[in-house]
């Protein structure tokens, strides 16, 4: 079991912005078909880690392996091939304002992979159906959709090209608890259908418990704990305990006080 090449692996990834060291040696492994959720407070480096993996930021040190192959510093053409394996649901959905819903979903197929518009349209409708939207929504513009519907469209776009690895950035932020659960269910369903590997970042623990096989906690730019979601409540790590119980007192707040 341990011989399986991880789908995604981070080794000692570091990233600083000027004097601010955001990632201070992140180590992470995700097995194929597994769902890992990174939890952690605001400003702990979750989004930066994700952007490094996606190639939106260049890490200062360390390596990021996709299917065992180094992805840091790849030339543009090879980078494109790696990107074809990815799907991404952004925090605010990041839908293109000027395009209709179906064009948003089909965007990566048409512009990124050269699929013809008719085929891409059919695929977009199929993906919209799978996230609970019908054809009437396909011709709306993103500004005409509610937050929950935008997330659904974002999810449909993320899965449109049947990616091998899907990233979710705070998938339930800004949604009411019911809609958040609907999105969680859709994520679980879509990922199962595709058999994809997923990496999510969130501070919504209900969401983490629902979609994760494994949970990792990032704190001060390092992974301080990683384990199965079932052992989250008995991690034996004081930082994790304080975070998941949302306590105002604990080692995290002690560290903040000490720094001040």
């Amino acid at each position: 079991m341990n011989d399986v090449t991880p789908k995604l692996e981070l080794k000692n990834v570091k990233k600083a912005f000027g004097p601010k060291k955001v990632l201070q040696g992140v180590d992470l492994k995700i097995s194929p078909g597994k769902s890992l959720v990174i939890i952690g407070g605001s400003g702990t480096g979750k989004s930066v880690a994700l952007k490094c993996i996606l190639g939106l930021l260049h890490p200062d040190e360390g390596s990021i392996l996709i299917d065992g192959r180094e992805s840091v510093g790849l030339p543009p053409r090879e980078r494109d091939q790696v990107m074809h394996k990815f799907g991404m649901l952004f925090q605010g959905a990041a839908l293109f304002d000027s395009l209709r819903v179906w064009e948003n979903v089909a965007f990566g197929l048409i512009q990124g992979r050269g699929v013809d518009r008719r085929t891409a349209y059919d695929t977009a409708l199929e993906k919209l159906h799978s996230v609970g939207l019908d054809e009437s929504a396909a011709y709306l513009f993103p500004a005409e959709l509610s937050g929950g519907m935008q997330k659904r469209v974002g999810l449909a776009r993320a899965i449109a090209a049947n990616p091998e690895i899907i990233f979710f950035d705070e998938p339930t932020t800004g949604l009411d608890p019911i809609m958040a659960d609907v999105i969680n269910n859709l994520i679980v369903k879509s990922v199962k259908q595709l058999g994809a590997t997923t990496l999510s970042i969130t501070h919504d623990l209900a969401s983490a418990r629902k979609i994760a096989d494994e949970v990792a906690m990032i704190y001060q730019g390092k992974i301080i704990w990683q384990g199965p979601v079932s052992s989250l409540d008995r991690s034996g790590n004081d930082y994790v305990d304080q975070f998941i119980h949302g306590r105002a007192e604990g080692p995290i707040t002690d560290d903040i006080k000490a720094r001040v």
Partner: peptide, 17 residues
Amino acid sequence: TMRVTEQIDALVTLSVN
């Protein structure tokens, strides 16, 4: 606006320069 709403990042993840 596209930058701050992550639409430019979305372009990159969809393999569009």
